[in-house]
Design a binder for these strands. Structure first.
Lengths: 220, 220
DNA sequence: CGATATTTTGACCCGGCTCAACCCAAGTGG
DNA sequence: CCACTTGGGTTGAGCCGGGTCAAAATATCG
């Protein structure tokens, strides 16, 4: 989307950095010094309360953007889920390029607005959905982003992997590990999904899953 | 923040439109045709589930931005809270100006990222906070945005108005009206706030309120 | 004032949390 | 090779915060 000029400049300021599973990328409040794009793996963003309660507030997939070009302190903890490679850009330089590159800025604005929309969908999930609906929504989401599930081409029966542990799923959905586990079992019992291993599953009835997720039918 | 040129162009394409309390500004899925800035009043963004459960997913204050320049369908319902005046810009024209105006784009990107951060704070609230913490957080938030509360200059005892009804507060916090009412009463009983009328209150103990909100002490 | 909408309060119930076992696979060292 | 650990995941029993249903109390407005 960006012109050859921007690409060359980005190329010049980029550097790769890898993280292993569970490794902290930045802690909330810490100076970051860079912004980055996720090359591979997943990144969890979390907020932690004084007494230890934790909520995941962002889950970045490949090509998602991390950090704010216009300020240095990280707003939340960022942790590598699985092995992660980031393509990092020094924050100040990136900001300078951004200010003069409408194409790059347009792209970033669009991505940020998509994140905001996703985040608002998440608000509905946390505020109003039942545990079963949360789990069903989560499985549908992961299946979609993994490319396995698709409203047009459901591909029922195809297995895919959950990138998150039960604990991470619980932090994503505002539940406890136990409730996550129980609802997974319930969906299996009800014949909507097939749990091959705890991390690996296939969707037996995509429609049933969407019904259980309580989502609007409209795929937009 | 924008140069005189952009301002002139914006001036040329703007038009004001007013809404009365409770009036629908756009419905989810509907074509919007414009983007807008909130001149006065408040705007609630909501998502509604098939069975009627509703969750507020955005609450816009003066000068906040509404709509996406890059696509036409509204993603959520937008409703006027109190009497609202919007400054509207025809979407296509605004998008064209945006593409050529780095200043304007920078400003919009910054605002969108602020919204995203606020939204993620909200995720923590919905996912992990108790009813009492939710209410305390909400009162602190409104007091801050109303300018009455300030960590530096708490101004305890100064009254301010809640822009939302109990029902709207419930939709904001992922609670029921009854729980909102009960927790308000509890905070009054505990001597943290003073309810002059249901809509008008003053904070007796700002520190106590923040403690009850469970927020990190860091004002960043 | 009367009428209607909003808010508050009460009694009871239930979904999801807590606490506590138990299961199971993958090391690890004797 | 097998006892032991370790770390996820599952399942059960019981409890409690917040939901539901119902009624009373207050605001707001003609």
């Amino acid at each position: 989307m960006s012109g050859p000029d921007e690409l060359a400049q980005l190329e010049a300021m980029k550097s790769y950095r890898s993280f292993t599973h569970g490794q902290e990328i930045v802690a909330a409040g810490e100076a970051m010094g860079f912004v980055a794009s996720v090359v591979s793996g997943h990144v969890a963003l979390r907020r932690t309360m004084a007494d230890g309660r934790r909520q995941m507030v962002g889950l970045l997939f490949q090509s998602d953007f991390l950090g704010r070009p216009d300020r240095d302190g990280a707003t939340y903890d960022a942790e590598a889920i699985g092995d992660v490679t980031l393509c990092r850009f020094e924050r100040a330089k990136f900001g300078a390029l951004l200010a003069t590159s409408p194409n790059l800025q347009t792209r970033l604005l669009e991505m940020t607005m998509d994140e905001l929309d996703a985040s608002r969908e998440w608000l509905l999930l946390l505020g109003r959905k039942t545990a079963r609906e949360k789990i069903a929504s989560f499985i549908a989401l992961v299946g979609k982003r993994a490319g396995t599930l698709d409203s047009a081409r459901p591909a029922e029966g195809a297995a895919f992997e959950l990138p998150l542990s039960r604990e991470d799923i619980a932090e994503y959905l505002g539940l406890t590990i136990e409730t996550v586990s129980r609802q997974m079992s319930a969906l299996r019992r009800d014949g909507l999904i097939d749990l091959i291993t705890p991390r690996m599953l296939s969707v037996t009835s995509y429609q049933g899953l969407l019904d259980s997720a309580g989502d609007d039918p409209e795929p937009l």
